[in-house]
Design a protein around this nucleic acid. Sequence first.
DNA 1: ATGAAAGCGCTAACAA
DNA 2: TTGTTAGCGCTTTCAT
Lengths: 336, 336
Amino acid sequence: MADVAERAGVSVSTVSRTLRGLSNVSPDVRARVEKAARALNFAVSRHASSLVTGRTGVVAALVPTLDSWFMGSALSALGPLLRAADLELTVYVTPDLAERAAFFERLPARRNADALLVFCFDLTDEESARLDDLGMPVVYVSQHADGRPSVYVDDGAAARAGTRHLLNLGHRRIAFMQSAGATGFSFSSHERLLGHRRALTEAGVPLDDSLVVAAPAADRRAVAEALGELLGLREPPTAVFAEQDELAVSLIWTLRRSRIEVPERMSVLGFDDQPVAELFDLTTVAQSPADMGREAGELVLSLITDPDADPARHVLLPTRLIPRGSTAPAIGEETD
Amino acid sequence: MADVAERAGVSVSTVSRTLRGLSNVSPDVRARVEKAARALNFAVSRHASSLVTGRTGVVAALVPTLDSWFMGSALSALGPLLRAADLELTVYVTPDLAERAAFFERLPARRNADALLVFCFDLTDEESARLDDLGMPVVYVSQHADGRPSVYVDDGAAARAGTRHLLNLGHRRIAFMQSAGATGFSFSSHERLLGHRRALTEAGVPLDDSLVVAAPAADRRAVAEALGELLGLREPPTAVFAEQDELAVSLIWTLRRSRIEVPERMSVLGFDDQPVAELFDLTTVAQSPADMGREAGELVLSLITDPDADPARHVLLPTRLIPRGSTAPAIGEETD
DNA sequence: ATGAAAGCGCTAACAA
DNA sequence: TTGTTAGCGCTTTCAT
């Protein structure tokens, strides 16, 4: 910056003022400074600025992985918002518990970001408590965190609506398939199972734990085994509600291999509405991670810029059932 | 840090040394400092450090989007590597040309990162030139950049192998479908088409521009139209090589709707080997973005830490054809 | 409208 | 092994 100042024949203060777009700079000087800066290929060091302003100009995101439809959509949607506010996005990827422990051990975001976006969906209370002490706004995405700003969908209600759809089609034996082993998803998963159960209870259908199975979506063998368990029941299900599209699609694939027609002999319902859902003609409960990302971005922005923004604002996003071809009336039933 | 020093009864330098794990600190003092730091919930400000060390401790990534299999896999794989080296990852998402222009206009990474990973696959020469002046290592991922460190696959050779597979199956009318409108993919796209053409030429099959069509994978209508064009030809193709799995899968979906059996009446070949490929039983040319991410990470690490690392190292990653059920001998042909 | 000077939190000589 | 001191590149009073 000193170089720029010298070249433009002004002081560093003036350069600083100009580059930050402050008003009290004469047009003449402004032009000179900008020219000099350009000529020297100068860019302000955020690090030096942040040292004195106390603001870092970065938003941190704690994510379990980047390798998923949800995270990709959410963060992609977030990007433009942050850029518009001249904020950078730094991402902490913690694919396993060890990495996450390391994050919480050192809390590198502390003092190195203006806000934190948490995309881990199964924080322990202790972890949340540590985040409370971070001294910066922490926004929880895709989970409802009491007394803290959060953006989420009502997973329980959404799952309930999904199961109702199956009930309306006349299904009474409805299995629920969870995506086992996916660290970081248990919060939503739990809520969805609860919603599913609630719908069943409301319809007077007895709960049956043998109808709840689990398998990682990517593990075809595990999915096949889970399916085997269900089919081996004395009274096998006529429909399966998979808590994620990827799992649902994996299940459909497995069913096809076993020559079990979908939806004729087995209805399959998903959750998410990923692009693959349409390709598999999968009925599913849609949510929009892109909207979540945007809302979270706006929330974070307001929290950073406006000191008396509601520090516990909740944004509840809608879900909706998308009927496609993977669900049909139970055998011997009329359409609803 | 002053607080920690006071609490531990030592000077700030000692605290600094301790927290950076330097050796010349007595065990006793080390323990006191660590205790004090913990008690005060202290974390070093990277910004202040970087001001004096000149190293920022962050690696920047310029990406067209986060919302794709390729980017997700690559960046997810990169994460642990960077974390192990105590580096942060900041992501610049530039979904459109305007955003990208803004990035190049301000080059925010300058002085705010120790290295840059470029995942945009269609940089102009001018853009590359600007990156050369950045004063930090710039690693190109998924593209071969002359004289600059890059990690990539040989798209041309890979596509050539793909087309050869179709030729071996007896196909002679082979269409090539590009994913139109996907900003940031034209480099690979171009190379793949070249490789395809080369294989045809080598086999003595005449090139026919009417067999090259384009459509965005997500736009079903456009895919249907492109397919229509091909089917409307006097001599329609018996196989289609889609330059991406998503497009291939979208095409298969469209073919099914039109009651054109795959592979009986039309073979379809993809490129990538995304998870969806297996679900659609798609024969495809596999590449591994996760490996690319890892290699890029290691390259970047070596460039940052080792001043005399080869500044133009190239890492060429393998691809391989994965035969599945979406390709079959052309009608009237024997298997190869 | 502009400049001089102090200081943000840290690290890196240098001294002790 | 530890402490003292001088900046790193900026922003921000406070003068002018």
